[in-house]
């Protein structure tokens, strides 16, 4: 009858080696560039730190008439950018990744410093600022509404620039000293939770409710 069929064993192997190599290269590129991303975030953090320090120093130097010297809005945009980037990295590397933990910890410190600084400015200079602390988790199972809450807060902040709204977000999933102190201070029990001008609001708040709280008509 007919000649026996062949199985191109060698070719299956070569094809496997080639495609497996391409696959591994892809994964390696991902890992390498994720590390580069971390470096770049750390650079931004460094920059923000310098800016916060500059502000504090300006503030101290001009002790005679400090309120005229303080110029802050641009700074906070950088702060928001770091927050987005860190959430992104957390989804890529996991919340237990050491580098992510370090970055988030450092970021929380910066945020807290910035928040304390503005709180002081608003008290001393009589500035009408709305300072919001937002505690969230990126884990959908733990807090399904957290990402929506973040969206609503960003929308609120951008829609009413005249209201001087500042949102400081804290990833409550991540165990660190600053975040723990803040959650204890305001007795945050559930997520999402929002602290607006030192008062705690537990659970999800839509834009209407938030507008009422900071009295926007």
């Amino acid at each position: 009858m007919v000649a026996k069929r062949k199985i191109s064993k060698g070719k299956y192997l070569v094809a496997f080696v080639i495609s497996a190599s391409i696959f591994v290269i892809g994964i390696l590129i991902g890992i390498l560039l994720t590390n580069a991303k971390l470096d770049s975030i750390n650079e931004i953090q460094q920059m923000v730190r310098t800016q916060v320090l500059t502000l504090e120093t300006q503030y101290s130097i001009a002790s005679q008439n400090p309120c005229n010297f303080v110029d802050y809005p641009e700074l906070t945009e950088e702060l928001y950018k770091i927050s987005d980037n860190l959430d992104n990295l957390e989804s890529q590397l996991g919340k237990n990744n050491k580098a992510v933990l370090n970055s988030v910890e450092y970021y929380s410190l910066l945020e807290t410093k910035h928040w304390l600084f503005l709180k002081d400015v608003s008290k001393r200079c009589g500035k009408d600022l709305n300072l919001i602390l937002f505690f969230y988790s990126n884990d959908e199972g733990k807090c399904a509404e957290c990402s929506v809450q973040g969206y609503v807060l960003t929308n609120l902040r951008k829609t009413y620039p005249e209201k001087n709204i500042y949102v400081y977000s804290f990833n409550a999933d991540i165990n660190n000293g600053v975040i723990n102190t803040l959650t204890r201070l305001y007795s945050v029990k559930k997520l999402p939770s929002i602290v607006i001008n030192d008062k705690l609001y537990s659970g999800f708040k839509d834009r209407d409710e938030l507008e009422k709280i900071i009295s926007i008509n």
Binding site: N85, N88, L156, D206, R207
Partner: peptide, 22 residues
Amino acid sequence: SKINFDLLSVIRNLSFDFSWIE
């Protein structure tokens, strides 16, 4: 729905700053 369908604000706040980190 959580911002009362204030789509005007969404459009106005649209930002296209692209970050390679994402």
